[in-house]
């Protein structure tokens, strides 16, 4: 596209983000501050993820963008169109065909492969923020590895509800050191972070932080011995493809209480439907 550098960002900004990414990979789970740029869409729509994608993307890359697992929702469609326009890269909806996948709030059901990079859009990168509003304090807590308060929060869940009621953005500990926000993915996806084959990068545009989980890295979801971490389960399989191993969305079908549960990962669901057909 005329008038823009490849992938929208200028080269100096890309280099700044790239240097930050190398530090983020070297210190897994640590939030690296970066000079976030204004992007042509509002904060909260994935400006952090977009800046990371723009900084790593090359002309040979094949890009996939998902929003809550779906390739065909507003956020995914617009970000995919954006990079088609400003970078001219090939795009796909097939998880296995993409080498860069930008995602909002899901990890694809199809296992990721070595060499793939998953870029997460992150609204609030600091897992301790809802407990401690001061950035100065949370930074000191990370420096001192002072994470007791996070367990107190999970314990309060148990005291109040009888179980850990956190269902998304469930805090994890990366390589036994940093407590990290996995972005608002359902806790169903947390086990996919552990020893993944793919490199996972996280970008928060408004908060101007980026962080990373390298492949083959230990990622533990915080829990207690007597209240171990558990993922969501459903009584019925996906109404469209019959999958029992995938994260299901509830879809309201009429105004008389009709509902169905279907895969949130549209690519996974379609592939399964085609296999059956």
């Amino acid at each position: 596209m005329n008038g823009y550098n490849f992938a929208y960002l200028d080269e100096q900004t890309k280099r700044m983000i790239r240097r930050g990414l190398l530090k983020a990979v070297a210190i897994p789970g640590y939030q690296v501050p970066f000079g976030g740029r204004e992007m042509p869409m509002p904060y909260g729509w994935g400006t952090g993820g977009m800046q990371l994608t723009a900084s790593i993307l090359g002309e040979e890359d094949v890009l996939k963008v998902i929003d809550q697992g779906a390739d065909d929702t507003t956020n995914a469609v617009s970000i995919r169109a954006f990079f088609e326009r400003v970078a001219g890269v090939e795009t796909t909806t097939a998880t296995a065909d993409a080498n860069v996948i930008q995602t909002r709030h899901r990890i694809p059901e199809t296992p990721l492969a070595a060499g793939q990079i998953l870029v997460f859009q992150v609204p609030i990168p600091e897992p301790l923020r809802f407990i401690e509003p001061s950035e100065e304090e949370t930074r000191m807590m990370h420096a001192l590895e002072e994470y007791g308060v996070m367990h107190v929060k999970l314990y309060e869940d148990i005291a109040r509800h009888g179980h850990i009621a956190t269902t998304y953005a469930y805090p994890v500990k990366v390589d036994g050191r940093y407590v990290t926000d996995p972005s608002p993915i359902p806790k169903f996806d947390n086990p996919k972070l552990h020893m993944s084959e793919a490199l996972m990068l996280f970008g928060a545009g408004r908060e101007k932080r980026l962080y990373a989980i390298p492949p083959h890295t230990r990622v533990e979801s915080l829990d207690f011995e007597d209240h171990p971490f558990e993922i969501q389960e459903w009584d019925a399989p996906c109404a469209l493809c019959g999958a029992r191993d995938s994260f299901l969305d509830e879809v309201i079908t009429d105004d008389r209480g009709g509902r169905m549960f279907v895969c949130s990962d549209t690519d996974y669901c379609q592939n399964r439907q085609e296999e059956v057909a």
Partner: peptide, 19 residues
């Protein structure tokens, strides 16, 4: 080609750092 060659070299360094 500074834009694309620089990007490729960065991705090599990123891959080396990640693995």
């Amino acid at each position: 080609d500074p834009v694309h060659d620089g990007q490729r070299q960065f991705r090599r360094v990123l891959a080396a750092m990640a693995e």
